[in-house]
Amino acid sequence: MGVLANFVVNVLPYITFIVFVVGVIYRIAVWWSRPSPAPIPVFPGQRSVGSAITRVLADVVIFRSLWQFPGNRILWLGAWVFHVSFLLILLRHLRYFLGEEAVPGWVAAVQGLGIAAALVISIPLLYLLIRRIVHADLKFISTPADYFVLLLILSVVLSGLYAKYFATPFVVDVKYVMRSLMAFQPVDLNTVSLNSAFLLHFFLVQVLAMYIPFSKVMHLGGIFFSPTRTHHFGGEAHTKKLEEA
């Protein structure tokens, strides 16, 4: 496992990082630069900048749009639990990157929630997967890529859980590896105790990160540019106050 492990730990992370950052910036730059020839808000709730912002935030934080139709509310629940769990897991992982020795207080504070989220997240993930198979209309519109990303995340989650509970690596070493990478210092794999379960997890995570800029997962950035939600009307020609001459 020598060469491969070395590649995954000492080389790939930099490639991943560059692909991820450049990819994400490129995609956002494209959206940013495209002109909007006309305001096309979908009303109501965008009579001012403030109300437009509130609405986008509601869409991001509580998935307001999905809640609106009773038939979509299971999806709303599944999607929301999935995303919140994902976020908590990401936050929990900061402990491998932040702080010389001890992690910052708030990172320590989310550890419990992060573990709970990691245990829970498979449920919404499986739901999201199964609904694509059992509903004929969803099956029709799904592409192989839609299954792929769910399966990829599921495998990241399962490999992580396996690493945590069944093939536990030495946490201090994991942090040492991450901090070394951040300092551009190659790690001598013989000096740390990492196992193949961790390496698999670490590898899958990097695949996911590299896949994100090329995929629909970018929706998380796109929502902030969506013209129907971000456009609003302010003091343009049309006005409700009829000023009669």
Partner: peptide
């Protein structure tokens, strides 16, 4: 922008 964005970000959630 609308066209570029809406071609890119649909997740096929079916809502």
């Amino acid at each position: 922008k609308s066209i570029q964005l809406y071609l890119d970000i649909c997740v096929r959630c079916g809502a």
